[in-house]
Design a protein around this nucleic acid. Structure first.
Lengths: 229, 229
DNA sequence: GTTTCTTCTGTTGTGTACAACATAATTGAC
DNA sequence: GTCAATTATGTTGTACACAACAGAAGAAAC
């Protein structure tokens, strides 16, 4: 029965669209996890070669990333990872605070069993990170936890916007954290407490409280960043 | 003095980027003003010919519009103007309500003289529209007024998001209004009252009240649309 | 030595031919 | 006549060659 399903399931997977999505996600993660730091110049030809395609489909991906504010192409010069000046960063964080609260107020859904499992795994990763802090893995964990929390929001447009703003600003915050090795351990500690607090609120079933805790942590992490910079 | 400024101002206008922006705005307006109704198939070749370019730069524009949720390309079939199903529409409007209130609460700026002039012109256009209702011109007026109001918001990311959501949903609302000729006159009346009320709030200097009025009108227009559909 | 102009180099942007794909039309078997 | 397979047609997606462009390096004038 399951076999017959697998046999009959090419599932209308358009090869082109799938490849686009994979390249897009890959390059976006590299930017947001600081593999490509702000200001870095990307080589269209090198990236195209890496993915075994010509410049044309790659440029389509870069165009999308430019629309999302992560890249900027200049004719005859290059394609650069964008940086965010402090003024816009402040505005974005103010907005993220309000939106974080909205996610709790506006149509939030209780986590299902699959999400609970993911949360437990994330909690374990967070605890393990305390003994062995690592910048890159911390960045990945932070992103995974954020995306997991986002699954509590039923409002799709709001979800998209929060994701967009996260990808836009987190790399700047990460850059500030990674600047000094000492502070990383502190940030890991603080993050673990945030995970713990939010999961406890979720266990009680208080989604609004969870959102408020997240909001508070976004605000505080932004404050720490401003003082470091 | 002003002459010398004009002489020395080629102003680093990259021909390619400028052309991209113009094509993007033009096609976006056609979609949002219902020249291209939801479900319409766009011809890449015809559009490219219209703007005197090849498919390559045009496809870049279409790709951006796809990223903004206004188009969807399917390999071997065509590029179609997206429609919005009722479920997502409800979510988007709920979100727009909250964001409208945010624009008043979060860093709003008083209008300058240029904006006042634009508001007066918009008010006049609104009054004139009552005697001679016209679907296309009403759509344009509605958009212009929305964009003018948006200039009161200092928070750039919030501004971008509101604009994005407006472009995403208004065409659906317009489609509903245009469906019956009778209701257009009513909508024009209601719109004129909205303009009047908001401008009065602005004259007093109460930006928050203006945002609340706008919020109320968004909510009511959405209710009217649901009942018509 | 300084400045200006020219040339060179590497990048993004564009035009064009063709491949991949989906669908409608046609053909053929029965 | 019906249904299947096949062909035909029109679309988006891709590859590649070249144009447009910006900046650096170098040459020439003084």
């Amino acid at each position: 029965m399951t076999a017959s399903m697998n046999i009959e399931a090419p599932e209308t997977a358009p090869r082109a669209r799938d490849r686009f999505e994979r390249m897009h996600a890959a390059i976006r993660n590299r930017i947001c996890l600081l593999d490509y730091a702000p200001g870095t110049r990307l080589s269209e030809e090198a990236l195209a070669a890496e993915y075994g395609v010509s410049r044309t489909p790659l440029r389509r991906v870069l165009g999308r990333l430019e629309g999302e504010g992560l890249l900027q192409s200049v004719h005859g010069v290059g394609t650069f990872v964008t940086d965010v000046e402090i003024g816009e960063l402040i505005q974005t964080y103010q907005l993220r605070l309000e939106l974080a609260e909205l996610t709790g107020k506006l149509s939030a859904v209780a986590p299902d069993e699959a999400l609970w499992q993911d949360f437990r795994a994330l909690s374990a990763r967070s605890k393990a990170m305390i003994d062995a802090p690592d910048p890159r893995r911390f960045a990945q964990l932070n992103m995974d936890f954020f995306l997991a929390l986002l699954r509590l929001t039923a409002n799709e447009p709001l979800k998209d916007i929060c994701e967009r703003l996260y990808f836009q600003t987190t790399r700047i915050w990460l850059k500030s954290v990674f600047a000094s090795r000492i502070d990383l351990a502190d940030e890991v500690d603080i993050f673990d407490r945030e995970v713990h607090d939010i999961l406890r609120a979720l266990e009680i079933g208080d989604l609004h409280a969870a959102a408020l805790i997240q909001r508070a942590h976004i605000s505080m992490s932004f404050e720490r960043m401003r003082r470091n910079a």
